[in-house]
Amino acid sequence: MKHCLKVRLYWILHYALLALFVVFALFPLYWLVKVSITPNDLLYSEGVRLWPSHTTFAHYVSVLRHTAFPLFFRNSVIVAGATSVTSTLIATAAGYCFSRFSFTGKFLIVGVLMVTQMFPLVMIVAPIFRLLSPLGLTNSLTGLVIVYTAFNVPFATFLMQSFFDAVPRDLEEAAMIDGASRFRAFRSIIVPLTLPGLAATLGFVFTAAWSELLFALMLNSSSDASTFPVGLLAFVSKFSVDFGQMMAAGVLALLPVCAFFLLIQRHLVQGLTAGAVKG
């Protein structure tokens, strides 16, 4: 009886803590949605109420109709999409090499990749700007894709390598003896088995590129080539902040990420726990 009670208490505490964490994590999101549908005249008078006395979609309408936000949004989709696909392709190739081959200079290359992850990016904004501007890659989406890819490839490579490490070598060796070339074995055997890892990497890079602000702000000053995080700043004017529109834009910006993760989440859960159990 006493034991039973102890177990119950344990689980109650367990769920209480989890609930606390979920509330803590989701409350800002809730506030985002709440403010985005609060009419401007209620924003300050009912500022601390959990739910406004009446709601409106006016902010959404004006964000979509009267601001450049749809353009920023499009730019972000292009940049994040291209970055995630390019980075994942490079990381897949590099991760496979690190996992399967030993070659001269491997240690050095891994070391250099690690080093790139070790200092704050602010430090290299200026040099990067100086490098890209003569090439005409500032104020350009291509420039952003290149920079983001460069910064995301190292981590993505290590991520992919760990997924390849979890696939036994026997499998591709069996395929090669069965008559496959190394590339064919990779395509028919290794890739299907690392799909969860690919999804995880894709998702990770996409989110990183989607929400990047520093380089997007520094490299691209023209609004034609701005991404939405920069666009959000436009709602901050000298004298006021248009919270309603800003939050509406924020909610809109969340949608693609949510959709993306919904799409890959089945693979993702597998991916993040892969290696925990032996296939």
């Binding site: 036994p168 026997d170 499998l171 060796e173 069996a174 395929a175 090669m176 003896i177 069965d178 008559g179 496959a180 070339s181 055997i189 088995l193 296939g279």
Partner: peptide, 18 residues
């Protein structure tokens, strides 16, 4: 290359494609 040798191998781990 292994594929050109036309041999077959049975592994300790069986190495079946999962």
């Amino acid at each position: 290359a292994p594929k050109e040798r036309d041999l077959a191998m049975v592994f300790q781990s069986y190495a079946l494609y999962p």
